[in-house]
Every structure is written in structure tokens, then in C-alpha cells.
């Protein structure tokens, strides 16, 4: 196909260019808003905004001091728990749906997964807060403290189920359908000839599948990266179960914050304080960049894989 480049804009361009321009502008504008609004926080505290775990909200501006390290930690921690749960589920799902299930059930499973992906996150939130949190408290946390005295020596009996663990599990459930979609697509794209090659060597289904999983590893990695991006950006469901406390703890049973839940819970009343709003924009900026980098990476890797997979 040869495209002849015309210097003059035609009617098509006149209609579409402004829209495209607007979307780019919107994105840059967003970046600018986050930059300018977080600037005061950087000027006042420097990178300590990100590097310290401290939250002094005072009506006397001089005494205010904020560092969101605990929230950054919480975002990473809960997202990693989520991935640890979502990854085995997604891979199993892709194999089971792709190889074992008869057509009818296959369709059903795929639709269920799509519903999970599209379900309003607040519904995960209410279920998380009223079912999952007590469930994890009663069936995971309490038994661990009761039956594993070794662990209970190091920390106190948890007061509630609101915790990194609950948030991680809920996020895991929420991101599984996204990762599954990527892995399932990739698994379906494996050229038939590699499948034949594996079986022709006298491998069992398990062994052959293991090899094919190795083949789609780049796609699995992009799925994981994109899932991580989803997990780290999720707000309301997490803020309803994570406990919302500044806690730089590796204990999965302790309550904590994530960047997005910090913004969701603090922004509403941040205007009472002189410096808090700017800190929250700085938190947003951090999320902005993490989101940007992670998604760019995930999308890039996925695209590259899709391109390479064709024979």
C-alpha cells in the first residue's frame, strides 16, 4: 500500500486531528497539574516526601510534616501479594480452559472471567469489607496466632482483619481476570507446530505444557506487569479493606495504607491543612509515574511478543 502524503489537510484530518490533539493535551495537562501541585511539597520537604514514614497533620503549618513511605510500601506489598495469588490462578485457568474444558464450559469460564474483569470495583469493596476481612481474620489470622506460637511471639494478636493481607487477597481476586486474559490469549497463540513438536518427543501433557509455558513466558511477564499496574492503581476496594494506617511493617496481618487509599481517605479533608494537599499530589505524581512506567513496559513487552510469535 502506498500512501501519498498530501500537504493539505483534508476534511478527515480536520475532524480527527483536534480530537487526537485534545486527548494528548489532556494527558499532558494532567501531568502538569500533578507537577505544579506537588511542587510545594518538594520545595518544603524534598524527596523526604517519598522517603520518610511520618504523618503530622497539624493546624499549625510549621509543625506539619509528611512522608508517604508507608503508603508506597503498602502499595508494593499488597500488589505483590495480589500477584502471588493471581499468577498461579491465571496460568491454571488458561491451561485448563484452553486444553481440558469442552467448548460449552470453556465459553462459560471465559464469560465469568470477563464479568469479573468488568464488575464495578465497589462491589469487590463491599464484599471485601463485610465478608473477606472477617473471613481472613477468622480463618487465617486467628488460627495462625493460635497454632503457630513461633509467629505470635513477634507481634501482637491482630485486632481486626483489615490488613495488607486482606487487601492483597482482594486485589489478587480482582486482577486475576486481567492476567488470565493476557495469558490465555498468548497460550492460544502458540503455533500448533510447537505443540506437535513437544508431543512428538514422547512428552506427557504436563511436560509438554511446561515447555509451552516457557515459550509464552514473555507474555506471562507482561501480564504480570499489567496486573501489577492494575493492582497498584486500584483505590476504593483497597481502601475499604487495607485498614488505612501508617505502617511500615512486613507483617501481612497489620493494617496499612496504599498510595491510592491514602489519597482517597485524606484528600477530602486535606484542605484544612496548609501543606497536605500538595503532599497528596506528590503521592499522585508518584503513582502517575509508576503507572506510566509499568504500563509502558507491559504494553511494549506484550506488543513485541505478539509480533515475534508469528512464524
Amino acid at each position: 500500500m502506498i500512501k501519498i502524503k498530501s500537504v493539505k489537510m483534508d476534511a478527515f484530518d480536520l475532524i480527527t486531528y483536534p480530537a487526537v490533539f485534545f486527548v494528548f493535551l489532556l494527558f499532558l495537562w494532567m501531568l502538569l497539574v500533578y507537577f505544579t501541585n506537588s511542587l510545594p511539597a518538594f520545595q518544603r520537604e524534598g524527596l523526604n516526601v517519598y522517603l520518610k514514614n511520618i504523618w503530622i497533620a497539624s493546624e499549625i503549618p510549621n509543625k506539619e510534616y509528611y512522608g508517604i513511605l508507608a503508603a508506597i510500601w503498602g502499595s508494593l506489598y499488597t500488589s505483590l501479594i495480589a500477584l502471588a495469588i493471581a499468577l498461579p490462578l491465571s496460568i491454571s485457568y488458561s491451561i485448563f480452559v484452553g486444553d481440558y474444558l469442552p467448548r460449552k464450559f470453556k465459553e462459560f469460564m471465559i464469560i465469568v472471567s470477563d464479568i469479573m474483569a468488568g464488575l464495578p470495583t465497589i462491589i469487590y469493596g463491599i464484599w471485601g469489607a463485610f465478608f473477606l476481612v472477617p473471613f481472613i481474620k477468622n480463618w487465617v489470622m486467628d488460627p495462625v496466632y493460635e497454632y503457630l506460637p513461633f509467629i505470635s511471639k513477634f507481634s501482637q494478636k491482630p485486632a481486626s482483619g483489615f490488613s495488607f493481607l486482606s487487601a492483597g487477597v482482594l486485589l489478587g481476586i480482582m486482577i486475576t481476570p486481567f492476567i488470565s486474559a493476557v495469558v490465555r490469549e498468548a497460550y492460544g497463540m502458540v503455533p500448533h507446530t510447537y505443540r506437535e513438536a513437544a508431543y512428538s518427543l514422547g512428552l506427557t501433557k504436563y511436560e509438554a505444557t511446561k515447555i509451552l509455558m516457557g515459550y509464552i513466558k514473555p507474555a506471562i511477564i507482561s501480564g504480570v506487569i499489567l496486573g501489577f499496574g492494575r493492582a497498584i492503581g486500584e483505590t476504593v476496594a483497597v481502601s475499604l479493606v487495607v485498614g488505612n494506617a501508617f505502617n511500615l511493617s512486613a507483617n501481612p496481618f497489620s493494617p496499612g495504607y496504599t498510595i491510592s487509599s491514602l489519597i482517597a481517605t485524606q484528600y477530602g479533608n486535606s484542605f484544612i491543612y496548609e501543606h497536605m494537599t500538595s503532599v497528596l499530589y506528590a503521592a499522585g505524581l508518584f503513582l502517575f509515574f509508576i503507572g506510566l512506567i509499568i504500563n509502558l513496559l507491559g504494553i511494549y513487552l506484550l506488543r513485541r511478543w505478539r509480533k515475534n510469535v508469528s512464524l
Binding site: E196, L201, L203, I211, G214
Partner: peptide
């Protein structure tokens, strides 16, 4: 019964060595 295919299909994510080793190892 070994097999050779129309499209030359060594596993691209395995080394030359492992491509041959895999069937021997698993069996």
C-alpha cells in the same frame, strides 16, 4: 517414532543443547 515438521520448529526459547536434551530428559 520421531518426527520432523514442515516448518523447522526447534523451540525458540530453549538453547540448541536443551532442544535435544528435553525429550531425553523427560523420557
Amino acid at each position: 517414532v520421531g518426527m520432523v515438521f514442515q516448518y523447522p520448529n526447534p523451540f525458540p526459547h530453549l538453547t540448541i543443547y536443551d532442544n535435544i536434551a528435553i525429550g531425553l530428559k523427560m523420557n
